[in-house]
Simulated scan of single mutants.
Amino acid sequence: MGIGLGIVLLVIGLIFALDVVSIPGMEDYVASDTLGWILVAVGALAIVLALVMNKQRGETKHVVEERRDVR
Protein backbone atom coordinates (compact mmCIF):
# COMPACT_ATOMS: atom_id res chain seq x y z
CA MET A 1 0.00 0.00 0.00
CA GLY A 2 1.76 3.06 -1.19
CA ILE A 3 0.95 6.70 -1.34
CA GLY A 4 -0.66 6.27 -4.75
CA LEU A 5 -3.09 3.62 -3.53
CA GLY A 6 -4.00 5.83 -0.57
CA ILE A 7 -4.76 8.75 -2.85
CA VAL A 8 -6.89 6.57 -5.14
CA LEU A 9 -8.89 5.22 -2.17
CA LEU A 10 -9.29 8.75 -0.81
CA VAL A 11 -10.62 10.08 -4.12
CA ILE A 12 -13.00 7.16 -4.68
CA GLY A 13 -14.20 7.47 -1.10
CA LEU A 14 -14.91 11.19 -1.48
CA ILE A 15 -16.80 10.54 -4.71
CA PHE A 16 -19.08 8.06 -2.93
CA ALA A 17 -19.33 10.04 0.34
CA LEU A 18 -20.31 13.30 -1.31
CA ASP A 19 -22.74 11.61 -3.75
CA VAL A 20 -20.99 12.90 -6.84
CA VAL A 21 -21.88 9.67 -8.63
CA SER A 22 -24.75 7.37 -7.73
CA ILE A 23 -24.81 3.82 -9.04
CA PRO A 24 -28.37 2.57 -9.63
CA GLY A 25 -29.27 -0.37 -7.39
CA MET A 26 -26.26 0.06 -5.13
CA GLU A 27 -28.33 1.45 -2.26
CA ASP A 28 -30.17 -1.89 -2.06
CA TYR A 29 -26.97 -3.61 -0.91
CA VAL A 30 -24.78 -1.00 0.78
CA ALA A 31 -25.08 2.65 1.78
CA SER A 32 -22.82 4.54 -0.60
CA ASP A 33 -22.11 7.39 1.84
CA THR A 34 -21.00 4.95 4.55
CA LEU A 35 -18.83 3.06 2.06
CA GLY A 36 -17.36 6.38 0.95
CA TRP A 37 -16.36 7.45 4.45
CA ILE A 38 -14.84 4.04 5.12
CA LEU A 39 -12.76 4.36 1.94
CA VAL A 40 -11.69 7.88 2.96
CA ALA A 41 -10.50 6.58 6.34
CA VAL A 42 -8.64 3.64 4.76
CA GLY A 43 -7.06 5.93 2.17
CA ALA A 44 -5.86 8.38 4.83
CA LEU A 45 -4.47 5.49 6.89
CA ALA A 46 -2.66 4.11 3.82
CA ILE A 47 -1.04 7.50 3.16
CA VAL A 48 0.08 7.87 6.78
CA LEU A 49 1.49 4.33 6.89
CA ALA A 50 3.34 4.82 3.60
CA LEU A 51 4.92 8.04 4.87
CA VAL A 52 5.97 6.41 8.17
CA MET A 53 7.47 3.40 6.38
CA ASN A 54 9.36 5.63 3.93
CA LYS A 55 10.76 7.66 6.83
CA GLN A 56 11.95 4.52 8.61
CA ARG A 57 13.53 3.21 5.42
CA GLY A 58 15.48 6.46 5.03
CA GLU A 59 16.91 6.33 8.56
CA THR A 60 18.39 2.85 8.19
CA LYS A 61 22.16 2.73 8.65
CA HIS A 62 24.25 0.25 6.73
CA VAL A 63 27.46 -0.90 8.37
CA VAL A 64 30.19 -2.34 6.18
CA GLU A 65 32.81 -4.40 7.95
CA GLU A 66 36.11 -4.78 6.12
CA ARG A 67 38.98 -6.98 7.23
CA ARG A 68 42.50 -6.70 5.86
CA ASP A 69 45.43 -9.00 6.34
CA VAL A 70 48.38 -6.81 7.38
CA ARG A 71 51.06 -9.50 7.73
Rank of each mutant, 00 (worst) to 15 (best):
M1I: 02
G2L: 01
I3Y: 13
G4S: 08
G4D: 05
G4I: 01
L5T: 15
L5W: 08
L5R: 10
L5A: 14
G6H: 11
G6F: 04
I7E: 04
L9R: 04
L9K: 05
L10I: 03
V11R: 04
V11N: 09
I12C: 14
I12M: 15
I12D: 10
G13M: 09
G13H: 04
L14M: 14
L14S: 14
I15Y: 07
A17N: 09
A17K: 02
A17H: 08
V21C: 05
V21K: 10
V21A: 12
V21P: 11
S22N: 11
I23P: 11
P24C: 06
G25V: 00
M26K: 03
M26C: 06
E27A: 14
E27R: 10
E27G: 13
D28F: 10
Y29K: 05
A31G: 14
S32A: 13
S32L: 05
S32C: 00
D33C: 01
L35A: 15
G36M: 03
W37P: 03
W37L: 07
I38F: 15
I38H: 06
L39S: 13
L39V: 02
V40W: 04
A41D: 06
A41V: 01
A41P: 03
V42D: 07
G43T: 00
G43Q: 06
G43R: 03
A44Q: 02
A44D: 01
A46Y: 04
A50H: 03
L51Q: 06
L51T: 01
V52T: 01
V52A: 11
V52W: 07
V52G: 05
N54F: 04
N54P: 01
N54R: 10
N54D: 13
K55L: 12
K55W: 14
K55N: 09
Q56F: 01
Q56C: 00
Q56P: 00
Q56G: 01
Q56H: 02
R57Y: 07
G58L: 00
G58T: 00
E59K: 06
E59G: 14
E59V: 00
T60G: 11
T60A: 15
T60S: 10
K61Y: 08
H62Q: 04
V63Y: 01
V63M: 00
V64Q: 02
V64M: 09
E65V: 02
E65H: 03
E65A: 04
E65R: 08
E66Y: 02
R67V: 02
R68F: 14
R68Y: 12
V70W: 11
V70N: 11
R71P: 13
R71Q: 12
